[in-house]
């Protein structure tokens, strides 16, 4: 790396809308540093897609790049259309846990199944933050939210594990308390051929922390650190022991045929067969 990292090379001069202590800020700085370390001086080779929710505002319109800010849950279908037409571009999706693992879950699973060559970064704050703190598919069991005032009675979804089963090339989970690992995971995701997914467990002091019983963001970050368990250790633990834990690490990395490769091979063959007819 010869040049120093200047975040303003990648960001428009617009005030970021995030609350103090919001994990989205960490995700932005880690992502842009990852981009820098991969040698991109700007974002001209990237297209960003996002849906609705706090994390969807990460790229749009703050990144100096093309960004498509779609409807709630629909970033991945739009990213699919872009990637298939422009396989040369890096198509990156940012979204929250509600956007990607709630309303948009089927698109996430199917993109992983297809091994579509995009990178998806899910900022998991365990809550619907923008709408004021409703229970999410990732909210830990028992957590008080505005729509579960007596505590959530649902089990949270383990998204990276689901995507391993679905067929992703790469899947990882870290928290914003693991800045360096998160950045490295993002670099690896961006370099992966095929579907790459990184979950960043992220503090939302405004909509999650207060009701869930955290005094401030520092306390949430401490909780992240103390309850994080590396995947290798988690494999030796019981399901019950893991209920209060955040399992971190690389869930899968594999080299398998990707969607755009297979699709374009098919098109070339079809074109050839039409010519010979």
């Amino acid at each position: 790396m010869t040049e120093t990292f200047t975040i303003r090379n990648y960001l428009r001069d617009i005030k970021l809308p995030f609350c103090p202590g919001c994990g989205c800020l960490t995700v932005i700085s880690r992502f842009l540093r990852a981009v820098h370390e991969l040698g991109h001086k700007d974002l001209s080779k990237f297209v960003f897609c996002s849906g609705i929710g706090c994390a969807a505002w990460i790229p749009s319109p703050h990144f100096k790049a093309d960004s498509i800010h779609t409807a709630h849950g629909r970033s991945i279908p739009v990213a699919t259309g872009i990637k298939l037409m422009r396989p040369d571009l890096n198509v990156v999706v940012f979204g929250g846990d509600g956007d990607l693992a709630g309303i948009g879950l089927s698109h996430l699973v199917h993109a992983a199944r297809r091994n579509l060559d995009i990178a998806v970064f899910m900022v998991n704050n365990m809550i619907y933050g923008m709408t004021g703190g409703q229970v999410a598919p990732t909210t830990p069991l028992g957590t008080k939210t505005t729509t579960t005032p007596y505590g959530s009675f649902e089990h949270p979804l383990d998204v990276p594990s689901l995507l391993v089963t679905a067929g992703a090339s790469y899947a990882a989970r870290w928290t914003t308390a693991h800045g360096e690992q998160l950045k490295e995971a993002m670099k690896k995701a961006l370099a992966t051929r095929g579907f790459a997914f990184v979950e960043a467990v992220s503090p939302c002091p405004t909509a999650f922390g207060r009701r869930a019983g955290f005094k401030d963001v520092a306390e949430i970050i401490r909780w992240f650190r103390e309850s994080s368990v590396p995947l290798e250790e988690a494999e030796k633990m019981t399901a019950e022991d893991l209920t209060k834990k955040i399992v971190v690490g690389e869930f899968v990395y594999r080299k398998i045929s990707t969607f755009t490769e297979a699709l374009y091979r098919t098109i070339r063959e079809a074109e050839k067969s039409a010519e010979t007819k």
């Binding site: 629909r74 739009v78 699919t80 259309g81 872009i82 990637k83 298939l84 199917h110 699709l263 074109e271």
Partner: peptide, 26 residues
């Protein structure tokens, strides 16, 4: 595909129009 174009069966109609919008912006 014989004309160099792409067809894809998406997981539902919502995804279908989503992909169409993405392709249009591409």
């Amino acid at each position: 595909p014989q004309a160099g174009g792409i067809t894809i069966q998406m997981e539902d109609e919502i995804a279908s129009i989503g992909a169409v919008i993405g392709a249009s912006w591409a």
